[in-house]
Simulated scan of single mutants.
Amino acid sequence: MNRFKLSVLLVVVLIVLAFESMAFAKTIRWRMPTTWPKGTILQWSAEFFAKTVNEMSGGRLKITAYPGGAIMGPLEIFDAVTAGTVEAGHGSSAYWIGKEPSAPLFSAIPMGFTAVPYLAWFYEGDGLKLMREMYAKYNLGFVGPCGIIPPEDFAWSHKPITKLEDFKGLKFRTFGFWGEILSEMGASVVTLPGAEVYPSLQRKVLDAAEFSLPNIDRDLGFHEICKYLTVPGVHQPSTVFDLYVSKRAWNKLTPDLQAIVKYACQITSMRTLVRSVWLDGPALESFKKYGTKINYISPEVQQQMAKVANEFFDRKAAKDPFFAKVLKSQREWMKSYKVYRDLMNPRY
């Protein structure tokens, strides 16, 4: 009997050790470089996603989020993920316009969606399906929204901006679709890396510039060198962040870990949005206290900008069938959403 008990005890110990060994062996570690500067809410979003996955998986999938430049250049991450050099990356589709002309439509659309209808288009409409269709030729196992922020500041400037005529000859720092649209309004568009925006405004090499959210712009001190702030950020009513996972890394995950990654992305979008709003209110109040002259673009001028933007998008769509397909889907949803917005959004 004693020998039997000893045998059973040994079997139990061996089983426990085997399970512990398996659990240790199955710990998966991902490196996830981002396109974001250290210390911003943009990088916070990536780090929150990594922390959420680590916690939800019980440590079975551990992701480390590296800010832009820490292990590679911010604009190198997409190629690194598709090549399998790193397992994942966190960025925004607008950065890959050189690869995909339609990519910014999945990131930030001038005169386009605010955050809630944008996410509705992704998850309830055609957005996610069209996004994955665009990225299908790349070596990705997963791609999808993983963070979203509300409207940015429209412009910091040394001169007031109240009408379309004010853009004529204005040396304005921006990029992407909005840069092309502003050029059509007569602005002299300058494309500069983020690190050069503050000194260029300070030296008045630039007349105006757009950069980011109120809380980020406050931390960078734009209110100390510019007299005027123009809002709202109609050029970027919301901005979607993405998660990119290499096919090899994705296929190594069990179905439950894949599900954790998917749902952690959705949680990250919600938390990034509400945190941004929470921080932006006090930032705007601080600008007022500092004495910044804040100008709200009139609805009439916003409509004029929208007309120029829509004509610009129509020309793009005429030359690119996939661009046209995505734009059509977005416009159909926007038309429906406006009915809801106009009837159901309180105005007290």
Rank of each mutant, 00 (worst) to 15 (best):
L164I: 00
V339L: 02
S188D: 15
G98C: 08
V261E: 09
T27I: 15
A65E: 01
M56T: 12
K328H: 12
T34W: 02
P214E: 04
P150T: 02
G39S: 03
T268W: 00
R315I: 03
E55Q: 11
T85L: 15
I149H: 12
P150A: 07
D126V: 02
P145V: 05
L213W: 05
L243P: 06
S183K: 13
A187N: 07
K38T: 15
P160I: 01
S7E: 15
E124G: 14
A115I: 01
V53H: 03
P101G: 06
K325G: 02
G58C: 05
F24I: 13
A208R: 00
I63L: 06
E285F: 13
H158F: 07
V13L: 14
D207H: 05
D153R: 02
A25F: 10
Y340I: 13
V234F: 15
L75C: 14
T64F: 08
K288W: 03
Y135L: 04
G147V: 10
H90Y: 02
V301P: 04
F48C: 11
D314N: 09
S269Q: 02
F287Q: 05
S188R: 13
T52G: 07
L192H: 09
F113L: 04
H158Y: 00
M344I: 08
G186R: 01
F24N: 14
V16I: 08
E20Q: 12
M185S: 06
G73L: 11
P67K: 09
Y123C: 11
T40L: 10
M344L: 12
V205R: 15
P33V: 12
I109C: 01
Q202S: 03
N139C: 08
L119N: 08
T254E: 15
G39K: 00
Y198L: 15
M32W: 00
D217P: 07
L192K: 08
V16H: 03
K204W: 07
V261Y: 09
V231F: 03
V231C: 06
T174W: 08
I267G: 12
T114K: 12
K137N: 12
R29E: 12
V8Q: 14
K252E: 15
G112N: 06
P151L: 00
K319E: 06
W36K: 09
F113Y: 02
G233T: 01
K307W: 12
T114A: 12
T191Y: 15
Q43M: 06
I15C: 08
L182P: 09
E100N: 14
S92A: 15
Q236K: 14
G58Q: 06
K307Y: 13
V308E: 04
I71T: 06
A18N: 14
R60T: 11
K293W: 05
K289V: 12
E165V: 13
T82R: 06
D342T: 10
E20Y: 13
E332F: 09
R271F: 10
Y95N: 15
F175M: 09
L170P: 04
A155S: 00
V143N: 01
F106Y: 11
M1R: 14
P232K: 08
S157Q: 01
L192S: 05
P37H: 07
S93T: 09
F154H: 09
L164A: 05
G291F: 05
N2G: 14
K62E: 13
P110S: 07
A208V: 04
